[in-house]
Nucleic acid binder design. Sequence first.
DNA 1: TATTTGAATGGACGATCGTCCATTGTCAAG
DNA 2: CTTGACAATGGACGATCGTCCATTCAAATA
Lengths: 219, 219
Amino acid sequence: MEQIQTPEPNKRAKSKARSHQALIDATLEIIAEEGIGGASVSRIVEKSGLSRGMIHLHFETKEKLLVEAARSMADDYYRNLFEFIDAAPDLPAQRLIAMIDADLGESSLNAKTIAIWFAFRGAARAHNEFARYSDTRDRRLRDLFTATFAELLGNSADTPEVIDAANGTIALMEGMWADYFLHSGAFDRDAARRVVLHFIAGVLPESVGFRRIAAQSIR
Amino acid sequence: MEQIQTPEPNKRAKSKARSHQALIDATLEIIAEEGIGGASVSRIVEKSGLSRGMIHLHFETKEKLLVEAARSMADDYYRNLFEFIDAAPDLPAQRLIAMIDADLGESSLNAKTIAIWFAFRGAARAHNEFARYSDTRDRRLRDLFTATFAELLGNSADTPEVIDAANGTIALMEGMWADYFLHSGAFDRDAARRVVLHFIAGVLPESVGFRRIAAQSIR
DNA sequence: TATTTGAATGGACGATCGTCCATTGTCAAG
DNA sequence: CTTGACAATGGACGATCGTCCATTCAAATA
């Protein structure tokens, strides 16, 4: 009987996909624990439990595997961000808070992901492919913040008020990531959230009512 | 005639000191251009124009040379910071602005130093010695900001208002460094300064008069 | 001037790096 | 069941890594 072309991957393809992902996962784990320098071919294949030739088979080059790993970090960040945005009411103030919560939440900001982000960034000067993903993340985030502040302030997105508010907010969150990176032990997630909301409220006119909404959301 | 023991270094010691510094300088330049990974023994001795055995002679280990290079970055940062602080009037608001100007000024924030700082940070997970200098820098800065905000607000240094103001300010400046790192081409130094001052003014009570002093200093 | 000191040299060393490929083993098509 | 396809293996390869040390040579001392 002629079989309908199976939509689900067959055993071969499944195994291949599993190996592909195992290499990326192993690479990220090693980078988190030992930095980019520790991510040698030998360590990666050891950690993944696969054989030496797999990196060349799946990624052609170790470099390209690292780029894929960086891309996967950026993807995860955005997936989490839009989960928060989609779950929030469609009001600019609520969306703003949702974006901050996504950025400072456990799934984006934790010991493993932060170690990986800073490791990739540190190597970005040498390998601009990494920078592309650090930068892509940043550019999309900047556009989202700019649009949200424009809506919140009732201004066009190219006014100084909007641009400054977006720049300051992004800087604040970046700074909180750096704080976490340097003192993950002492870092207080709720305090970071409170400070960010407080600083943003300070630069917005009383009339937009952000202060009240932010205050309600303080935990 | 018996000569008085020369207080200035003799030719030998001078040459040794020059080589010592040449190795650190070469290392920092390579890290700025090619990242930590590019700083191999071969590259360092090539760049410095010295011979292969010098790293072992002066630093015992390449690792220790990198640590010395990181320490030299932290030293430069603090030297510049205190130059600004010492030049400022002994008033908390002026000192606060001086610290921000030191942090965002050309001598601390430029393409070379930022590339180096982020490279060291990225490798900090692997080699905690680097982290010590990133962290030392941060801790002293944090203490200075906390003391200044305490004075400005007339509160003790352990009140939430003071701690939050210091945390937010440090985060803002960290974030501006990250912005510079990711978009050194598009970065606007004066805009960054304006945003930081604006955000700080927003969280301080009108009564401390920071807004007016900050506004006067906007360029 | 003769001797001692130690800064500086540069090649040798084993370890590890990333890449490549002949071979193996297993799944899917014929 | 046989055969072709291909995911997977793991060792070989030259290049480069960081360390070490026998040697050189100029400066300081006697």
